[in-house]
């Protein structure tokens, strides 16, 4: 999960004000007042429920990462990825960082993926003669990062478990198909609109 959302200052303020105004008209002020108290403790309950599993999962993933799984998988994905990033030479630092970032995303190593992605962007900017216009490779790369390619949607499964889902992971195949189709659509559009 990623923090540091943008535009949130306005959205948050808007949601709160619209709720208060609406409560004046609908006469739901009592419910609104209670919801503020309940909302705050609900949030802490949610964090506490998620903390155990998020911590466990980060620990497990760290084992995979320490064993060098990111490098191994990055090598496997490279033959496919090099066709998508034609303006990056095959053995360039840019290509290496791109492969590492995408692998880290697939594994769900969000904290590792972001710095790798930023260094990939820096290398691609060098290849693009430091222009402040996005290159084709940059666009494809960022579009791939805005699509979800994570193999296991852990956060979602934990939340489903919290609300006593009969099978918290039963949504996983549906998640795989939707994310792969969306990823293909994103890459295709990024490529088609290059001209």
């Amino acid at each position: 999960m990623k923090n540091g959302d943008i535009m949130l200052n306005y959205i948050w303020g808007f949601i709160i004000l619209i709720s208060i105004i609406c409560a004046i008209f609908t006469g739901n002020m009592e419910a609104l007042s209670n919801s503020i108290l309940v909302g705050a403790s609900d949030a802490i309950n949610l964090v506490i429920t998620m903390a155990g599993m998020m911590s466990l999962w980060s620990g497990i993933l760290k084992i995979a990462d320490s064993g060098g799984i990111t490098c191994i998988l990055a090598k496997i994905f490279k033959p496919v990825l090099k066709h998508l990033f034609k303006d990056c030479p095959e053995n360039s630092p840019a290509m290496r960082a791109i492969c590492m970032n995408i692998t880290a995303n697939i594994l769900g190593l969000g904290n590792a993926a972001t710095p790798l992605g930023i260094s990939a962007m820096k290398e691609m900017k060098k290849l693009n003669k430091n222009s402040d216009v996005a290159s084709n490779s940059m666009i494809t790369f960022v579009v791939m990062n805005t699509a979800s390619i994570q193999i296991l949607p852990t956060t979602m499964s934990i939340l489903r478990q919290k609300y006593h889902s009969a099978a918290p992971f039963d949504i996983v195949p549906a998640v795989w198909i939707s994310s792969v189709v969306a990823l293909l659509v994103g890459i295709t559009l990024a490529k088609v609109l290059e001209k």
Binding site: W12, I15, I16, I18, S19, I20, C22, A23, T26, N28, A31, L32, N34, S35, I36, V38, G39, A40, D42, A43, L46
Partner: peptide, 11 residues
């Protein structure tokens, strides 16, 4: 979560 609960409770 507070803001979403407010949105819900206010109608």
């Amino acid at each position: 979560i507070m803001s979403v609960s407010m949105l819900k409770a206010s109608g």
